[in-house]
Amino acid sequence: MALLEVKDLKIKFGGLTAVDEFSISIEKNELVGLIGPNGAGKTTVFNMLTGVYLPTSGTITLDGQDIVGKRPYDIVSYGAARTFQNIRLFKDLTVIDNVKIAYHKQMKYNMIEGIFRLPSYWKEEKIANDYAIELLDIFDMKPYADSLAKNLPYGKQRKLEIARALATGPKILMLDEPAAGMNPQETKELMETIDLIRNKFNIAILLIEHDMSLVMGICEKITVIDYGKIICVGNPEQIKCDPNVIKAYLGE
């Protein structure tokens, strides 16, 4: 069975059906792209998958477990992590603290153990610290560990957001327009980062993107939506030639 199985997802805001009959299935270690013109409902789909919105109907199964109606922080422990379209870092905290906060759920010591600095505190804090340093090292961000997140350059902030999402130990990583606002050089670097994640972490990635060079370059499977409905599913070559897709992007 697929890692993420979404069937007939539908959401209505009042009288407006924003997303309808949305289905997608993502296998382990697969990289899937979700594209569509502005306002097509991509981010709405994301918000339903991560528990921000409650779908009107439909099912979402992650690794065999139904996650519809779960709170966002709960869905994280089922194994879905996300980044945001407009970067949302903990700006006034250090880079390493950003990562450690995401590691929160893997740490088990309780407040009493924390206050009295019992051995379990030292042990788990050390594990968290080592883990965070290791993770930052993978993304070449170790030198920035102690600087404030807001002081990083834009591309590095994106990387940190991805690293933070990975620190939650996800099975699937959802990236919401990671290349938004990036120049071609940074986009290229981002592609390398995504490749790196796939090689090192063995997780599935769902990618929303506007930047066609990025999507066509790295995705194996692409789903195109327009006005909340799927208009085409296939590999990059098929998508490029599909008349419905061309119509949606360029008009008649």
Partner: peptide, 29 residues
């Protein structure tokens, strides 16, 4: 001081920084 410099304190500070992001990394806000 001890609470603030533990995982609980970091969770509390993450809410100050960005509540939505805190939820998205698994903090029960």
């Amino acid at each position: 001081y001890a609470i603030i410099n533990s995982r609980h304190g970091r969770a509390i500070m993450s809410i100050r920084e960005d509540e939505i992001a805190a939820e998205a990394v698994g903090i029960n806000t």
